[in-house]
């Protein structure tokens, strides 16, 4: 099953929430839609799930949705059924299909094992940690083999150190079950780690939809670039400081991520004005002529006041 959204638009009263949203999700793709809070990500998910009706546009599924293969949304706070155990929650969708009890038990047991919930099978939701609740909610959705799985802010209620682990687990699970998945989140690192495609939703519109690498290193606009993290804008008159003359010719201004710049020791046009320890990297501020550039690197051997040269590590997109 794959799906395609065409020119989706949604208004609440006089307020436009979404405008002209188009993208497609392949049969085994994991797509993340990222954007700031309140930009309409959850509304978009509800439209795909059929819980909201778009004012314009349409969604086309490659096969008709059925009761047996529905679109299922896993909400941000999981919405487990509080009066049911983990086992009953996971088996709920199967029991609505009037499946044989023994078959349900076997399928649920497999899910409990895969999602590492065996020990919590008879626990009630209020007895679970956030991670266990999330795994229960995803297992409950996966067990009915949905046509499309939708994840609403899957990392919002997790501890910092659990987020990346969960992102990897979601990707592994999605690939193993082969269910097309759309996730909306504002946790960028996790979205990059688990997604095949990423869409950036800014100011009601889908600013860019591409692979994580292209989205990060070749942002479609200055707004998209800024949303994904700090960027340096290298004006055209300073490009020759970063590239060899042969490569610099004819270039427009460049947008470069701090980690994509490299500090080379020795006399150069740059002067380090600030050095900050940021955990797993050092952040340097380097002035060249009247412009300031931020550089992230793991080498802590440079000091403020030192003159240096800055180089580009990777190819960067020219600013539109």
């Amino acid at each position: 099953m794959d799906l395609e959204l065409r020119r989706i638009g949604k208004r609440f009263g006089h307020r436009t929430i979404l405008s002209d949203i188009s993208f497609s999700v392949g049969a085994s793709d994991l797509v993340s839609i990222v954007g700031p809070s309140g930009v309409g990500k959850t509304t978009l998910l509800k439209i795909i799930a059929g819980l909201e009706t778009p004012d314009t546009g349409e969604i086309e599924f490659s096969a008709p949705l059925t009761r047996e293969n529905p679109v299922i949304i896993v909400f941000q706070d999981y919405v487990l059924f509080p009066s049911m155990t983990v086992r009953a929650n996971i088996g709920f969708g199967l029991s609505t299909r009037k499946m044989d009890k023994e078959m349900i038990r076997k399928k649920v047991d497999r899910m409990l094992e895969y999602f590492r919930l065996d020990a919590q099978a008879d626990h009630y939701p209020e007895q679970l940690s956030a991670g266990q609740k999330q795994r229960t909610a995803i297992a409950r959705a996966m067990v009915v083999n949905p046509a499309v799985l939708l994840l609403d802010e899957p990392f919002a209620n997790l501890d910092r150190n659990l987020k990346m682990e969960t992102a990897r687990f979601i990707r592994k699970t999605q690939k193993e079950f082969g269910i097309p998945t759309v996730s909306v989140t504002h946790d960028l690192e996790e979205a990059f780690a688990m997604s095949d495609q990423i869409g950036i939703l800014l100011d009601k519109r889908l600013e860019q939809f591409d692979t994580p690498e292209n989205v990060y290193f070749s942002p479609a606009s200055a707004d998209a670039a800024t949303f994904l993290g700090p960027v340096n804008r290298i004006p055209v008159e300073l490009i020759h400081h970063f590239l060899p003359a042969s490569a610099a010719g004819g270039k427009k201004s460049l947008t470069v991520r701090p980690e994509n710049l490299e500090i080379a020791p020795g006399k150069g046009p740059g002067r380090i004005t600030e050095k900050t320890f940021a955990g797993h990297y050092f952040a340097y501020t380097v002035d060249i002529e009247k412009a300031s550039f931020t550089v992230y690197c793991q080498d802590g051997g440079f000091e403020a006041g030192q003159t240096v040269t800055l180089k580009l590590k990777n190819k960067n997109k020219e600013t539109p």
């Binding site: 009761r67 679109v71 609505t96 959705a141 009915v144």
Partner: peptide, 22 residues
């Protein structure tokens, strides 16, 4: 939480089942 009902419906539950089980 109305989403309890929405989730149950997405999982295939009928209106009667939702009333009695959720």
């Amino acid at each position: 939480d109305i989403r309890q009902i929405q989730t149950a419906a997405m999982l295939g539950a009928s209106g009667i089942r939702i009333f009695f089980t959720i």
